[in-house]
Design a protein around this nucleic acid. Sequence first.
DNA 1: CTGTATCCGCGACGATACTG
DNA 2: CAGTATCGTCGCGGATACAG
Lengths: 117, 117
Amino acid sequence: MNTIEENNYINSLTDKCPIRYTLNSLGGKWKLLIIWELYTNEVMRFNELKRSLTGITNTMLAKSLEELEVEDFIQRKQYNTMPLRVEYRLSDRTETLIPILEALVSWGNTQLEQKAE
Amino acid sequence: MNTIEENNYINSLTDKCPIRYTLNSLGGKWKLLIIWELYTNEVMRFNELKRSLTGITNTMLAKSLEELEVEDFIQRKQYNTMPLRVEYRLSDRTETLIPILEALVSWGNTQLEQKAE
DNA sequence: CTGTATCCGCGACGATACTG
DNA sequence: CAGTATCGTCGCGGATACAG
């Protein structure tokens, strides 16, 4: 381990392995939750998201939104009214992800029910 | 934020929200990869997994396997031969997860292809 | 061969104050 | 309202040596 060549190889796996790729772009504590919120609510503003995502901070919400926008999972629309108004919604690209997320939510709910027994 | 009541509430979301629950039990860098390896190879030994999961360390593999076993995602079978032999395989519980993982892998591959163009 | 024990860096994540 | 700026912390993940 630890030579430059080996590290490069490990990093390059993100561009080869679909699971590593997905974990890399959608992993972390908040991104899937944000996408799910935007899926169920269609269009949301910054503070609206913040209220929905219990426990998230300004910093993490802004950072997550920015990364999701750069990777084209969501779209940001800014209206220069006063006060400022910014709307977030899912990009087209994300639609292909929704069935998987729905399956995941369904699976998670089943697990939670069985745990409750 | 930061009162005990609020923190308890946030933690309790893991027992309510299917996404938080899933992230909590299967999040992190290695668990999905381990499950995928065991799915494609059926039965694997410790060092076999280590060789397959490029970049993983003893510590992380052991820790991930232990947590996955505690939550009954995988099963561990030990043969007290000399040298020691331990086999890992998926638990029945994990079968319901496989279609989702397959969808995820397929989705990730599509994204990687489009990126390559 | 299959792990533990130990130690540790670093980056994810968070709290708070402040700005256009 | 929609964020930045700043600073702090905490634990995930890693490196290495060693054990049964």
